[in-house]
Nucleic acid binder design. Sequence first.
DNA 1: TATGAATGAGGGTTCATTCAT
DNA 2: CATGAATGAACCCTCATTCAT
Lengths: 201, 201, 201, 201
Amino acid sequence: MVVLAGELFAQKGYRATTVREIADAAGILSGSLYHHFDSKESIGDEILSSFINEVLADYRGAVASASSPRAVIEQIVRSTSRTLSQHRAALAMLQNDWSYFSTQPRFAYLPKALREIEQIWITQLELGKQAGLFRADLDAKLTYRLLCDVLWIPAQWRRTSGYTTDQVVGGFLRIVFDGIASPAGRTAARPRTRATARATR
Amino acid sequence: MVVLAGELFAQKGYRATTVREIADAAGILSGSLYHHFDSKESIGDEILSSFINEVLADYRGAVASASSPRAVIEQIVRSTSRTLSQHRAALAMLQNDWSYFSTQPRFAYLPKALREIEQIWITQLELGKQAGLFRADLDAKLTYRLLCDVLWIPAQWRRTSGYTTDQVVGGFLRIVFDGIASPAGRTAARPRTRATARATR
Amino acid sequence: MVVLAGELFAQKGYRATTVREIADAAGILSGSLYHHFDSKESIGDEILSSFINEVLADYRGAVASASSPRAVIEQIVRSTSRTLSQHRAALAMLQNDWSYFSTQPRFAYLPKALREIEQIWITQLELGKQAGLFRADLDAKLTYRLLCDVLWIPAQWRRTSGYTTDQVVGGFLRIVFDGIASPAGRTAARPRTRATARATR
Amino acid sequence: MVVLAGELFAQKGYRATTVREIADAAGILSGSLYHHFDSKESIGDEILSSFINEVLADYRGAVASASSPRAVIEQIVRSTSRTLSQHRAALAMLQNDWSYFSTQPRFAYLPKALREIEQIWITQLELGKQAGLFRADLDAKLTYRLLCDVLWIPAQWRRTSGYTTDQVVGGFLRIVFDGIASPAGRTAARPRTRATARATR
DNA sequence: TATGAATGAGGGTTCATTCAT
DNA sequence: CATGAATGAACCCTCATTCAT
């Protein structure tokens, strides 16, 4: 039932999905749903909280176990990716209705969790810079902001099938670590324009 | 008035914003809105169509004028970035209520425009590969998918002010072209797992 | 201006026509209409009252001047027909929105006028029966009810052009006076069924 | 509930009746109506389509079973009259709000049905002329136009009760077949004006 | 548990009318 | 006289939720 609701939420958005549609999908009447759930909100809560808790566990686990900042980030991406693929509905809900959830008291734990996640990224990026693993001119917060949205995408890839999760994750890591420029293109591109040089310093 | 509505749409989402809220913000009654607009939909249309047309113009202009695939992409990012910052509301609307707009007849031009944009990216990435500018193992469609979502983010940066547009754009280009790894970190990262190696080769 | 409004009222119905449509047709804005009229109701009133007064004059004139009941009825039909053709809009309004006008205080004169008209018909039909001009078994009130609605129809004949007013009036008189059966059919039809015989006696 | 709505529609007109009035009459709130119906339109549709289908069946049945044109017309009038008296609300709706229904896509079947009905009348009148049953100078289309409006009236007779259906039907048939003039009155009426003579010959 | 009728607040929208300019 | 922005009440309809059966 939660799964059913989650699929509808993912397809049409949380707010755009009516309890009647959920009940229809379950083969019962809308009123009967309330023998199983207190409210539509509580269904959403069940889906989102179990998801976000797993993600947080992934992040905390990566930080606790991995050796270097780079390893932490790799592990975060890999383990989170597995979690995301198991919670496609939750992810789609967050993406489609974030403006709603982020302002509802009941879902206050979501912005909180995202803040913790951001902090982990920034910390690791900074550590990596200090260790000489990442470019010294990297702006940690900026980089996180640029990357985090990409990180939440893979679960929607069902639409663009033809890629395995491994391919998506691998491609992502390759791009963010090594960039898309070939060795030849990389040197040829220098010296960079002044604006870019300033911006990334 | 359109600006007012756009700001509300951006803040709370298009569907979640009521015409009464727009009217309140404008200091008039809800019925009075219809002296200025045919419908809520037409307000959204005005905001979104003017935005998407400018973006399309940016893309087409970049393709027409630039010399190499790398230059095209750079120009796309730079000019679009300016457009995005002038249409923050439109962008937020697309991100928050895409599941709605993408299914409404009146907004059918949106998916259409996105398809054109995708095609331009893929074409340029492929051309860059053939010219030896981009890594030969780059998967154009995958790369586009990964990047496009990042590309649409900067306009939300109002929330996280402290960065200039130049900084954001520069940072993005630096990452996608050169990656975040330093030359030292780049070699140190190997050997990778077999799955990743396959996916990125 | 009244004419313009009348045409719209006739086409789309009084209630279905908005003051904005009238203003559009007049080439001004809706607010400006109120420099010419107190209200939409007063436009309707002007159209309907002038019409109904002319009709009443026709009826009263026919009663005053004609010799026999048959002549009265013929004159009513003929003169009214001329009046109707000059007030097509008013007639269409009555037909389309009678349920509205008949309950509005401002238009209370309409049901009143119709009652006078009915009384004239019934009186003449009864007089004709007593004089041996009309069938003795004629039910005056029933006959009036059957005929009056037909009487109000011709003005809509613009739609079904191809007939002159004379043709319509002539056809109507021929039918109600002589029926549609030919002399042969008339005798062949007798004896009538018992139900019919009873009903018309 | 449909019956309730139908009565209100008949009394005040379809458009002039609000869903709140229907709900009030049913002793519930307006929103609760939508537990039973999709829309106000669908209530109207249910009332009108069941009516018009029965009428069409009457007409087709009369054509299929009756022997002569006169018998067909008699049967049409008799059977339709029964149908009309069972669908008073539908008839009143058509009369009051025809200008609305005739232009709404959902009710496109109404003009279509009326066209079929007209065709049946015209065909029968023409056949009757050829068979010598009806006057040779009868204009079929004109006659139909004159009669059809009368035909649709009886159902409103609730207002003017005191007549049985049989009386109304019998009276109507007597008039249209034999006219209202007595044999004496028929000859006395001549000579007619030239225009009328031309029109009815 | 399930039903299904009912709630009630709120959604977008219409429209005759007013009035300062 | 005309404008056009604004009114305000009413419109049809939606939907999460309740509750007697």
